[in-house]
Write a protein that binds this DNA or RNA. Structure first.
Lengths: 211, 211
DNA sequence: ATTAGTAGACTGACGGTCGGTCTAATTATG
DNA sequence: CATAATTAGACCGACCGTCAGTCTACTAAT
């Protein structure tokens, strides 16, 4: 006689699996997380997992999709905010990318050696695909308004996204607080310089990094 | 009665294993390459492999070390070349990084979907660790000579290395020939702008990308 | 009665281990 | 000084544990 758990709504189950998987992927790393780890955490069987997802990688894709959607929505909200100037918007979006509600940072904080190559690369690629067009439009508008200047808005965005995503990822490099500030200042400088924005357009934003 | 192959010199064996593993890692991807794939290619037994390397990842590390050493030597040769100007050197080193003797490109050319996250990330990190100091010194010298200007030489180098390593990697994005030229032009522009070099200092180098 | 959902035993592949073998060089012995 | 004993290093491959993914059986709901 098999003990059967009461069925949850499919959405809830799926979300539950994704939530647990996400936590494990971030804390232990994707490769080191076992399907069985996920199962025992929510106390379901293999069959249930594979009823909702066709593979381990499939969950990861779903998780990445989920937070890219959130990022894109956040980016669009920022883009639509008329109280912000173009440079401000750009900075917020690019830096916001590595700020998944502090969730990741908090979790990784102490855990060393999490190296999550696959997940990181996938989400970086996806981020570029989805966020680059939005940011590019933003820069193009800035050019029209005369606050930016560059013949390569799209490629500039790509460079900025890739480097910030890589350099500020807590799972790849472990900078101490001081180094982080330095990197951020440098990033702001590079941002200003490469877009030929007015010096100081971004500078004041650096205070936010103190928190 | 066990048939025993004649012993090779340890160096030769080790190199043989690394060569075969490298080819397989590049063509099939690290994850999809099996230890047994490597073994049957050179016709040795499991034990032999693990006599020379403590794990699959260990071979990869050795392979990465090997070509980083080559890159560093190439970079130092370029650095020591008095016939080249600073901007020229920088460009050659950064772009040379994604030009492993055409070996990788040739191999990947047709093979789609090789995605080699782990190997790529590791070598990018190692490249930054080893190449960044050399390039930083180069920029600092350029600043003294008055051809460059930036308060953040180190961080600028990091941004340039990360983005070129990522964007120009044939395994990550598949740009067609035209797009590649566009990316390279943009990269040169960004390089010039962020270092405040004279326009045109790098431009002529773009002809090299035609080959 | 049909189907959406759950269960968990099972499979196969793969990374890694381990006891042992073979050969050539080195050292001890008559 | 020839030859037997010993050692060291390269190599072998059966075996093991783990893990993603499969399959069939069972149950809950409509």
């Amino acid at each position: 006689m098999i003990i059967m758990k009461k069925s949850k709504s499919p959405e809830a189950r799926k979300k539950e699996i994704m939530d647990v998987a996400e936590t494990l992927f971030i804390t232990k790393g994707y490769a080191k997380t076992t399907i069985n780890n996920i199962l025992s955490e929510i106390d379901i069987a293999k069959g249930t997992f594979y009823y909702y997802f066709k593979s381990k990688e499939d969950v990861m894709d779903a998780i990445i999709d989920r937070f890219i959607t959130i990022e894109v929505e956040a980016a669009e909200a920022i883009a639509a905010d008329d109280t912000l100037k173009a440079p401000d918007k750009i900075f917020r979006i690019i830096m916001g990318e590595n700020h998944h509600g502090n969730k990741k940072e908090k979790m990784i904080e102490e855990l060393h050696e999490v190296s999550n190559e696959k997940m990181h690369q996938k989400s970086l690629i996806e981020t570029i695909k989805q966020l680059a067009p939005i940011l590019t439009r933003m820069i193009e508008q800035g050019i029209v308004e005369g606050v930016f200047e560059t013949p390569y808005p799209r490629e500039t965005v790509e460079v900025l996204l890739v480097s910030s995503g890589f350099i500020f990822d807590d799972g790849i490099f472990q900078w101490d607080e001081e180094e982080k500030i330095q990197k951020a200042k440098a990033f702001v400088y590079i941002l200003e310089t490469v877009l030929k924005a007015d010096k100081g357009d971004f500078q004041y934003l650096l205070q936010e990094l103190g928190k």
